[in-house]
Amino acid sequence: MEELAEKLKSRSFVFFGGKGGTGKTTCAAAFALRASRDGRKTLIASTDPAHSLSDIFGVAIGPKERPISHGLYGIEIDPEEEAKKYITRVKEQMQGVVSSVIIQEIERQIDAAYLSPGSEEAATFDKFVELMDEAGNPYDLIVFDTAPTGHTLRLLTLPEILGAWMDSLIARRSRAVKLLRMTSSGSRDDPIIKVLEKRKASFEKARAILTDRSITSFVFVINAEKLPVAETAKALSLLRKYGIAADGIVINKVIPPEAGGLLEKRRAIQEKYLAEARTKFSYLWIAEIPLLDSDVDGIEGLLRVAAFL
């Protein structure tokens, strides 16, 4: 069973996704811990708004990277914090540029955008692009513990959707600027187009990283039950549409044959979905983790899980 971790050894970014409650965080943490024990400098980053990394490692991990164990670092991305940093940056840029009346107007705008849907995702997305940016990335491996499927799919498909908006914006603005220049009242260098193009480039970079199979991998964590299997199959086909390919499946909490008693009946039901998952995802690398006799808690517990990856 040691295949999955072995096969993903050369990757720089590994995403763990799946339906809520299947054990994503546990598997991501175990995977990261194992990589760090193998001597790779590893960061585990949670993009789930309901973070649970701190709970599983038993240490307080915040919105700033901090060491957890030897060679292992953690961060829980806080969208609110990231949005605040971004807005502060915008406000700094504004200093001395415009009149006080207009500054008031802008403050109003900022409050509106802050509350608008999509802002949290955008803030999380920006942080995770920042983490993956090779220039400042000191880690050999970054493991992402993502939010439940729907949330993560939106996050990963963001560059594609927003890229199209940027194209359209740039085209319109360019036309306006060009026409104005014909009347010789427009300026040659439009700062707006420059800012838009910079943003577009960052989306393209994120997309390039996400779709590059030699450095980025996706692993889905499921249970041998009806809904997780069905949802993951849907998620995989949607990701494929956006050019993102998954590499692995972890079937978590598999009831072992020796369980007996009450669990025997559940095991019979599970057998069916286990077979379904094995055939449906046969083109991926599959790891199976048995249902353990104790709660997974702290480094010791995670190492126990890691042995099955």
């Binding site: 940056r89 840029q93 107007e105 955008a113 999509g118 955008a122 927003l162 707006i192």
Partner: peptide, 20 residues
């Protein structure tokens, strides 16, 4: 509804004179 309102913010310092 606008999916990029968050990213529109960073243009405000430059667009403010036109937006009013």
């Amino acid at each position: 509804p606008n999916p990029i309102s968050y990213y529109a913010l960073e243009l405000l310092p430059y667009l403010a004179p036109e937006i009013e």
